[in-house]
């Protein structure tokens, strides 16, 4: 009985922590959606959302409410179960990855040994939501969108994997907290700058952001895999997509920008709590994401594939070999002295 009781309390605390992650994440997504539209508008000299609430801040919640109360239309020829499971999978997976993200020293829900592999695994599952949606819709444009998206995500995962390997060689651990702590002296984006760029661009492609938003290119495919979706399932896709974007921003922060560490370890800066630095850095990376969306034209599909397989893959492979050689010959690798 005692064992069960302690297990029960453990379960309750875990659920409490999950809520503690989920609620700020939802607020983050709402703000990200708003920021995305505002930045996009500012670049194009428009105003963006400015009517609902102060500075248009309530535009996104209002849109969300509208979607929730809309009718869910199930296409007649769709595979209904798969059709409805697809958005749920997308959202659930994108939230699940946040379980291992450390926002401050020691503040993480699951501090597992293979944290970075876990995130890599979860994000490689993300393609299923899109593939299932495209297939289950039983319609041409969603299917094309899903195929494009799947090919794109699988291609760019390869270079993301190699970039992660490069970083891991400098750290000597797969644990995300230790990756951050290894950047105490120098953030990895300085010694590994080319890999930072490769990771950033691959992250754009992985999350189907412009200029790589071919799966939902409206001029060619209506709305890609989301074409047949309406109401709540559509919102699940939208939220899943933005949580994934925030996840990629957090990953960039952890792998290259020193996670929760302050820029310089001096008095007024290091007294600010770590999660503030973390959020600031994620915001900065998201700002870059939004700016890229605003001023880079969409790639053609063959250009996208060329960039992934013929530029990034050889480049990141070269970086793996080069980094490991340098670490080995100058005896810089962790565990060598």
């Amino acid at each position: 009985m005692n064992v069960l009781q302690s297990n029960f309390f453990e379960l309750i605390t875990i659920i409490f922590y999950c809520i503690l992650i989920f609620v700020p994440l939802l607020v983050g997504v709402v703000l990200a959606l708003y920021a995305d539209r505002k930045i996009w508008a500012a670049v194009q000299k428009r105003r963006g959302p400015n009517v609902v609430g102060p500075f248009g801040l309530f535009q996104v919640p209002a849109d969300g409410l509208k979607f929730i109360f809309k009718e869910i239309i199930l296409p007649d020829s769709a595979d209904k179960t798969v059709f409805l499971i697809a958005p749920i999978i997308t959202l659930a997976l994108s939230i699940a990855a946040w379980a291992v993200i450390p926002v401050q020293a020691g503040v993480v829900l699951a501090n597992i040994n293979v944290g970075i592999l876990y995130i890599f695994a979860i994000s490689s599952l993300g393609v299923y939501g899109i593939l299932m949606a495209g297939w289950a819709s039983n319609s041409k444009y969603p299917f094309f969108g899903a195929l494009r998206s799947a090919a794109q995500m699988v291609s760019y995962e390869v270079s993301i994997g190699f970039v992660i390997v490069t970083v891991l060689m400098c750290v000597g651990s797969l644990n995300l907290s230790e990756i951050v702590l290894a950047q105490k002296n120098i953030w990895f984006f300085i010694p590994l700058f080319p890999m930072f760029i490769v990771f950033f661009i691959s992250a754009l492609a992985e999350t189907n952001r412009p200029p790589f938003d071919l799966p939902e290119a409206e001029s060619e495919l209506v709305a890609g895999y989301q074409t047949e979706y309406s109401g709540m399932p559509f919102v699940l896709f939208l939220f899943g997509e933005y949580i994934n974007i925030l996840l990629m921003c957090a990953m960039t922060t952890i792998l290259f920008l020193g996670g929760w560490l302050p820029p310089i370890d001096v008095y007024p800066l290091n007294s600010i709590p770590g999660f503030v630095w973390f959020i600031l850095k994620v915001t900065l990376v998201f700002y870059m994401f939004a700016m890229v969306k605003a001023f880079v034209p969409r790639y053609r599909y063959d250009q996208l594939m060329r960039l992934g397989w013929k530029v990034f893959l050889p480049l990141s492979l070269l970086a793996v070999v080069l980094t490991s050689s340098i670490l080995f010959f100058f005896k810089l690798a962790p565990g060598m002295s």
């Binding site: 890599f120 490689s124 699988v154």
Partner: peptide
């Protein structure tokens, strides 16, 4: 476990 997911499920 993670390699199983990455290789078999993810690819």
């Amino acid at each position: 476990a993670m390699i199983l997911i990455i290789v078999y499920v993810g690819a």
